[in-house]
């Protein structure tokens, strides 16, 4: 239906203008082969643009739009069956989009077919460029943001690590104090300073099987040794560091 619909629609717009196009399509002979594929793209689209711009009140708009949606497909299938055709299809798409393309519209009315082609191509590139630029800016901003976030976090991590190290050192210092305070020599010195004396022989209270308690040994208070008798206590450990 689409091919016929377009065929029916286009003559209605302006048969003479359309008539000039065929030579244009044959004209790109000097263009490279890939170009040739793109040519059919702009062609139908220019036709469309001309329609939207020139006929503001066209009631044929709605029906023709359905025809347009399907339009490129037949154009493709009808025109070229080689791969390059595909290159043309994406070009047509942005053109179908915004009404922004109203600017270049008058250009279609005048000038040679070649210049009109270039103008329309440029006009349809603008949104692409905008899109790409937007993407680039967004990427750059995103990267900037990510980098900043990473830097901030790494800074935080460094600070936390430093704080952790400080605590570990503090713990090490305290542990060192505990260890050196708990050595037998240190305990003996502290005990002596507190007025304690080494215990003598112990006496034992033994609970028998029948519950009777017997005393083994003789409990006697430990005697205070003469200060001169005290053996030299080894010097305090040379525990370097905190204390």
């Amino acid at each position: 239906m689409s091919a016929t619909a377009r065929a029916a629609g286009s003559p209605a717009e302006g048969p003479p203008g359309r008539r000039t196009l065929p030579p244009l399509e044959n004209d790109p002979v000097p263009l490279p082969g890939t170009r040739r594929g793109s040519v059919p793209g702009p062609t139908p689209s220019s036709r469309r643009v001309g329609r939207t711009g020139s006929t503001p009140g066209a009631p044929a708009h709605a029906p023709s739009s359905t025809a347009r949606a399907a339009g490129p497909a037949p154009a493709r299938s009808g025109r070229a069956h080689t791969a390059p055709v595909r290159v043309g299809t994406p070009r047509t798409r942005p053109a179908a989009r915004p009404a922004a393309s109203t600017g270049p519209v008058p250009r279609t009315a005048a000038g040679s077919p070649a210049s009109r082609l270039r103008a329309t191509v440029g006009a349809h590139r603008a949104p692409v460029v905008l899109l790409v630029v937007t993407l680039l800016v967004a990427t750059a901003l995103g990267l900037l943001f990510l980098n900043t976030a990473i830097a901030v976090n790494s800074l935080k991590a460094t600070q936390l690590r430093a704080a952790n190290e400080d605590r570990a050192q503090e713990v090490q210092r305290l542990e060192q104090q505990v260890v050196s305070g708990g050595t037998p020599a240190e305990l003996a010195r502290e005990a002596r300073a507190a007025g304690m004396v080494p215990a003598g022989a112990a006496a034992y209270l033994v609970v028998g099987e029948d519950g009777t308690v017997t005393l083994r040994g003789e409990p006697v208070p430990a005697e205070e040794p003469e200060p001169a008798e005290l053996p030299a206590i080894p010097p305090p450990p040379v525990a370097g560091g905190g204390d």
């Binding site: 000097p30 008058p106 005048a110 000038g111 210049s115 270039r118």
Partner: peptide, 20 residues
């Protein structure tokens, strides 16, 4: 004469077909 009506950055100043 070619530029009448068409102006802007994307318009070629070269005469059509004069490229080669």
């Amino acid at each position: 004469p070619l530029r009448d009506g068409s102006s802007g950055a994307f318009t070629s100043r070269r005469a059509p077909g004069s490229r080669r």
